[in-house]
Nucleic acid binder design. Structure first.
Lengths: 256, 256
DNA sequence: CCAAAAGTGTTTAAAATACACCCATGC
DNA sequence: GCATGGGTGTATTTTAAACACTTTTGG
């Protein structure tokens, strides 16, 4: 189907397929080259950027919906997802955005479910950056990663959603397998530390960090080292998922 | 308006007033005579109990909706409310419940927005037990407090919602003014400790608890003591809200 | 051989825990 | 006067923080 056809059908008949008034917005976190990244879409015409999002099928679990949406944007199955907040301000004014969108596209419509008010459920997603193949949706022209410190101008309240998700990620650090989901299978201690530092937004002492994380028992050190830097080669580690989950049940005690 | 009239109007025309497919369920916590309590409604005919809940007006902020609903159930304004989770299983089967409800009432209806699937947003509410005047809604015959350890059989997934809310309350203890909202203006140290013990589900050392809580600076000791027990009269305390909020920003560090 | 960054261990300070005695009150 | 539970202080253990030297690697 042609893109325009898909779009006008979405505006005209989407309400038969999806629950009205409810949308999902996802903040997809990745970690690459020692930087925390977020996956964003460039909205057609609006010029601003948007969070990957979508709607809930009439008989679908909301968590499944979020998984389905992100499978389309990333190519990944079984993404680690958590709902973190519902954004329900009646003045979120999705109406204007969606009307302007159609206008630019050259389609005229007086009524559409897309002009209604939307309550949006925010999800955080943790993915392995290296495995993602970014794919724009029908409303977007691009899909790209951004450094968390270099977020472009965003539509609606999406920047607010993003900031709130980041705060949630920080709170989750001691209770969810954040490292496991954001890093590749094997990684070095400095990489893991940088991940913690970026999320917590503060520097940690290298030696104390290593001791603390080793003492939790959540890591297994490999024989292999990461060569290539002009310095001593750091060991690779991988997570001991069994111990990781056990440790998380009790909470891991990194000060926020 | 007569109760039955109100009810049939709700089933027939509620969708003009409220957002479809979305409901709110509140877990209202109170603390009285050293027990953590939850406010429940006895559903008409079903015999089981339910959380206080309701729907969102078409142009209303969801948080306002929760406030409005609880004002009706408790008589209280400006209740401390927090959303904590969205329950979105498509098999929550509110349909059966609502159909059965009407049947028992002797009303016949083939179609109603109330037979649709509902996604429910869970809220926790912290109230001063002594100020609440429980008031049933149009679906209920009673509204009463229950000890958190003596919860009766509940409709749908409401017991699950309640348990999840309790867990959330525990997580919030270090970051939200839980004591301030659950206790009366003045209270004794043993009362405060009991509140913490009940929420955390473990015993705390009396002397260490006192030191720790005093050191945070969130309390002001009054000259007055609580007489009446056959033992030394404990001092009354009240919260220093300014310091309390400051301490909460940093997190208060009671081990969960 | 030099710069850069990783590996490792000890010392010190702070926080949590365990524990004991005295004090007011009502019966 | 005695049982009950509240007020207060100290010693000990555990945990977190501060800190320095040695080692490996690439250029």
């Amino acid at each position: 189907m042609k893109a325009d056809k898909k779009l006008s059908e979405h505006f005209l008949k989407g309400h038969e397929k999806y629950l009205r008034h409810i949308s999902i917005d996802c903040v997809v976190f990745g970690f690459h080259e020692n930087e925390l990244k977020v996956l964003l879409l460039k909205a057609k015409y609006a010029g601003k950027w948007a969070l990957p999002g979508g709607f809930i099928l009439t008989e679908e679990h909301m968590d499944e919906a979020a998984g389905r949406i992100l499978k389309e944007r990333t190519g990944l199955d079984k993404i680690f997802l958590q709902q973190f907040y519902v954004f329900s301000d009646p003045d979120r004014s999705t109406k204007k955005i969606n009307q302007g969108f159609l206008k630019n596209l050259g389609i005229k419509l007086d009524k559409s479910w897309m002009f209604d008010r939307f309550i949006s459920v925010g999800y955080t997603a943790l993915v392995d950056f290296t495995k993602v193949i970014p794919e724009p949706d029908i409303f977007s022209e691009k899909c790209e990663w951004f450094n968390i410190h270099e977020i472009p101008e965003m539509i609606l309240d999406h920047e607010n959603i993003l900031v709130k998700a980041w705060g949630y990620l920080r709170l989750q650090l001691n209770f969810q397998p954040v490292g496991y989901n954001l890093l590749t299978t094997k990684f070095t201690m400095p990489e893991l530390q940088k991940l913690y530092e970026t999320i917590l937004e503060r520097n940690l002492d290298r030696r104390n960090f290593q001791r603390k994380i080793i003492d939790t028992g959540i890591l297994k050190r490999l024989e292999e080292t990461k060569k290539g830097g002009s310095h001593k080669a750091p060991y690779y580690y991988k997570f001991d998922l069994r111990n990781y989950k056990k440790a998380l049940r009790a909470g891991m005690g990194f000060e926020l």
